[in-house]
Design a protein around this nucleic acid. Structure first.
Length: 118
DNA sequence: GACATGACGTAAT
DNA sequence: TATTACGCCATGT
């Protein structure tokens, strides 16, 4: 089940994920694996989506829209929970300067955010 | 403590 | 490039 974000205020590892996502600058995107890696859990890519999914309903201000899958991109699991949300997310990314493919795929090489480098 | 679930990743085909 | 199979980590029951 989806755990409550409101209770994740504790020392849970989920808070680390939110912290990483907040660092994502406008016009840049990252993959779940990237966030997980920065959070210190390179094998916990699944949990990143978990945490972000809960945020969607909590109204927390986290740019979850900038977090994509490696190959699935935007139309990944969001469409499962919110088909319209996926389309809206694609529009939002385009507004930030991110070019989204017709299939919902984004060039991570071009828009991939590179932390720990500046 | 063990089993089941999940916005995923990587390797193999 | 798409599809299938397996694995990893955290949370819930």
């Amino acid at each position: 089940m989806k755990p409550d974000v409101t209770q994740t205020s504790g020392p849970s590892g989920w808070e680390a994920f939110y912290r990483i996502v907040r660092r994502i600058p406008r016009g840049k995107v990252v993959t779940y694996a990237q966030v997980a890696l920065l959070a210190g859990r390179p094998r916990a890519a699944r949990h990143v989506g978990f945490a972000l999914a809960a945020l969607r309903g909590s109204g927390t201000r986290v740019p979850w829209q900038r977090v994509l899958g490696k190959r699935s991109a935007v139309t990944a699991g969001i469409s499962i929970l919110d088909p319209m949300g996926a389309a809206a997310q694609r529009d939002l990314l385009e507004r930030e300067g991110v070019r989204v493919d017709e299939r919902g795929r984004v060039s991570l090489v071009d828009h991939g955010w590179r932390p720990r480098r500046r």
